[in-house]
Simulated assay, not measured.
Amino acid sequence: MRVVTSKAALLGLIIASTNLYAEDYNFKPGLWEFTSIDEIIEIDAPPGMEKLIRMSYESESSDDPEVECINDFEHYIRNQIQNADEDEDEHEKVVCNQNIKRISANKMESEISCAIGQNGTSLWVAETNFNGESLTIMGEELVESNFNNELGVSGHLKMKIKTSENGRYIGSCKSEPNE
């Protein structure tokens, strides 16, 4: 009786563990279209800089959706961070660390912290919810920097940005995936 109970308990544990950890995310590989809304929700900057930063930030935002061929979403996110590390401008090197945590087949949490040059930091925390042929990403980023620009303006900048992104599957990929 004891052996049967132990085997039943072990079998139940195995079945439960495979249900808790699905092999893949609930994500359909292929061509995806992403739209996002970014909003500066808090900014602390020297006088005159806030307006300039908001104008600059809004001019970089686009209503045009981005289209990407993705076969593995987690791999795609890791590549995006690696590309940010490599996209150095002439003034600042960006080095990022990332922690991606799988919650379930339908949810992923990510935390990305970056050193920006010698005087800045960025921390981005987000939750991604997968639903087969659609997904949503909700995140917040906190940026802090001490700066001294070409115009001789120096000071401290602290900014919090809220991001809401929606993705939808639009078909199969026609070329090599970006993963």
Rank of each mutant, 00 (worst) to 15 (best):
D44N: 11
L20W: 13
E23P: 07
L31E: 07
A16I: 14
S17D: 11
I37S: 14
E39A: 10
L31M: 10
N19Y: 14
P46V: 09
Y25M: 13
S36I: 03
Y25L: 15
W32D: 00
E33G: 05
P29L: 08
K28P: 00
G30A: 03
E39S: 10
G30D: 02
K51W: 02
E23W: 07
T35N: 12
F27V: 01
I14N: 09
I15C: 12
S17I: 11
Y25F: 15
D24M: 06
A16E: 13
A45R: 03
N26H: 09
I43Q: 01
A22M: 09
S36W: 06
K51N: 06
P29F: 07
L20S: 13
N26P: 02
Y21S: 11
I14K: 13
A16C: 15
P29A: 08
D24T: 11
I40S: 02
A16N: 08
E50L: 00
I40R: 00
T18Y: 12
E33H: 02
I43M: 07
W32P: 00
A22H: 13
D24S: 10
E33V: 04
K51M: 07
T18G: 05
L20K: 08
N26C: 10
D44H: 08
L13E: 13
M49T: 07
K51I: 05
G48H: 04
I43N: 02
D44F: 05
P29T: 08
E23T: 10
S17F: 11
P29N: 04
S17L: 15
